[in-house]
Design a protein around this nucleic acid. Structure first.
Lengths: 247, 247
DNA sequence: CCGGTTATTCTCAGATGGAGATTTACTCGA
DNA sequence: TCGAGTAAATCTCCATCTGAGAATAACCGG
C-alpha cells in the first residue's frame, strides 16, 4: 500500500479539517440594472462586510445546498426555485482564503427573472439586492467569485437561451434585448437583434398575442414570445467588440 | 445568532467528515487517437476497476494538488508540467458517490502534446494511457467526469487556441487539423481549415521554415507554425453538424 | 520517370452580420 | 383632436464568412 491508497483508507478527520461550503452568485435584473444578492456578515472575520450568501454543505448534494442557501436568503419557496436557473460556477480552495480554517467553496450561479426582497431577520445581519455598479469590496475572495460569475453569465448569453431566465414567461423581443444590453453593458442594434433572435431555431416561439398597450413613451404593441426548445443557440449571438479580451 | 452563523463558527470536525480530492482527466494524443490516463484501483471499493488518477487535497491549492497527482502518475518533472494545460473542470459531491464516506471531488482537465508512459511501481496497481474508444466502465462516477471532460475539451477547441497544447512547439496546419479531427471525431475540409486557421488573428504565427521532408506517403513539405498570442479565437472554429445537441 | 498523396491556393454561391432607413402603430401633451 | 416623438418590425446594401469543390504544385515510393 502506497501513500495515496493509505490516505484514501485512513480516517479523514485525522487530517487538516476541511470544510466545504456552497456559495451563490444570484443575479437578477431590477430597474433595468443587473443586481447581485449580497449579505452583510454578522460575525468575524470580515464582520460588517458584504459577502455572497452561502453555507456549509452537509448531507445534501452540492447543488441542493446552494438552492437551500438561496431559498433561505430570498424567502423563495420550492415552487419558485424551479424557475431559477442554477449552475455550478467553480470551486475556490486556496489555502488561507478563510482565516479560520481551510474552506473549500463550491460557487454556484443563479439567474431569475424576479426574486423577492430578502427576508428580514434571515440568515445574516442584512441581505440586499445590490446593483453591480455599486458593489463594495467583498469579504474573502468573493470579489473574484463574483467576477467569474459575471463573465460566465455574459458568455452564456451568447450560446444558450439563458437570457430567457431573466424575463417572464411571455416577453417581447425588446425585453429580451434589454437583458443582453444590461448583462453585456452595451447597446445593441434593435433591428439586427430582432432579425437574429427570430432566425435562431428554437430560441423563441411566438404566442400569437401582443402586449395590451404600447410602450410608456409610445410605439406600437409588441408581439409576445415564449422560450423555445433550443438548448444551444446556433448560430450564437456574439458580443460585439471584445478585441481587448482576445489577446 | 441563527443556524447558519452558528455553523460557520462551530468546530467543523464535529460535522460529517468531508474529504476533498482532486482528480484529473488527462488527455493526450497517441497514434492518432485520443487517450486518457487511467489507473487500476489496488484497494476496495471498486478494487481492480479503472479510475481517474486523483488524491486527497491537503495543505496545497486545489490546482497544485491536481498537478501533483498528475506528476505522480506520469513521472512528469516540474519542468514538463509547465507545458501541460491544466484547468478546473467541475466539482462532484453527490452523497454516496464514494461508499466509504462523503467525498467531494474537484475534477481537473489536463492536455499535453506528449506525456511519458506511466511510472512503474507508482501510485496505483497499474496506470495506462487508454484510447477513448476502449474505455471500460470506470469506478465511482468517473465515467460521468470523463464525459464532462471530453465535452469541455471539444468545446474549448472551438474558441481557444487549446489545440496547440496537443502538438509540439512547431507544427504544421495538418497536424493541427488532426488534433481537431481526433477530438471532435469527424473529418474536416483541409482547404477550409487551412484558410480559417490562418485568418484567425493570433492563432498561429509562421516560423518561416518547413518540415524536412514531405509526408510519409508523399506531398510537399509543409510550413511550420508556432502558437500565436491569442487567448480567444475570433471568429471561432465551430464544430460542424451538431444539430443533435441543440435541442 | 510515374502514379498517388498532400500542402496550399482559388473560385463561387449561399449564409451571416453590421449599419442605416423605412413603414407603421401607438402614447402623450398641446 | 392633432402633431410630435417613440418604438416595433421589416427591408436594403454591402462586406465578410462558410462550405464545397477544384486547381496547382511539391514530394514520396517504387
Amino acid at each position: 500500500m502506497n501513500e495515496s491508497d493509505f490516505l484514501r483508507d485512513y480516517d479523514p478527520t485525522a487530517y487538516e479539517p476541511m470544510a466545504v461550503t456552497a456559495d451563490v452568485v444570484a443575479l437578477t435584473i431590477r430597474d433595468g440594472r443587473l443586481h447581485v444578492l449580497l449579505i452583510r456578515r454578522a460575525e468575524p472575520p470580515h464582520q460588517g462586510m458584504w459577502a455572497l450568501p452561502g453555507g456549509f454543505v452537509r448531507g445534501d448534494d452540492l447543488k441542493d445546498a446552494a438552492a437551500r442557501e438561496l431559498a433561505e436568503e430570498t424567502g423563495l419557496l420550492p415552487h419558485d426555485l424551479d424557475r431559477v436557473h442554477l449552475e455550478q460556477l467553480g470551486t475556490y480552495g486556496k489555502p488561507g482564503r478563510d482565516p479560520r480554517m481551510r474552506v473549500v467553496t463550491v460557487a454556484f450561479l443563479a439567474f431569475a427573472a424576479w426574486m423577492p426582497d430578502p427576508k428580514a431577520g434571515s440568515d445574516a445581519e442584512a441581505a440586499a439586492w445590490t446593483p453591480l455598479t455599486a458593489t463594495r469590496e467583498l469579504a474573502f475572495d468573493h470579489g473574484d467569485i463574483l467576477e467569474d460569475g459575471l463573465e460566465r453569465a455574459r458568455s452564456k448569453l451568447e450560446y444558450t437561451p439563458l437570457a430567457t431566465s431573466f424575463v417572464g414567461d411571455e416577453f417581447t423581443i425588446s425585453e429580451l434585448r434589454a437583458v443582453y444590453e444590461v448583462v453585456w453593458g452595451e447597446p445593441l442594434h434593435p433591428g439586427n437583434f430582432h432579425r437574429k433572435v427570430l432566425s435562431v431555431p428554437g430560441f423563441v416561439e411566438a404566442t400569437g398575442t401582443t402586449t395590451e398597450r404600447g410602450g410608456p413613451r409610445g410605439g406600437p404593441r409588441a408581439r409576445l414570445y415564449r422560450k423555445g426548445d433550443a438548448r444551444l443557440l446556433h448560430p450564437a449571438l456574439l458580443r460585439p467588440s471584445r478585441e481587448d479580451e482576445i489577446r
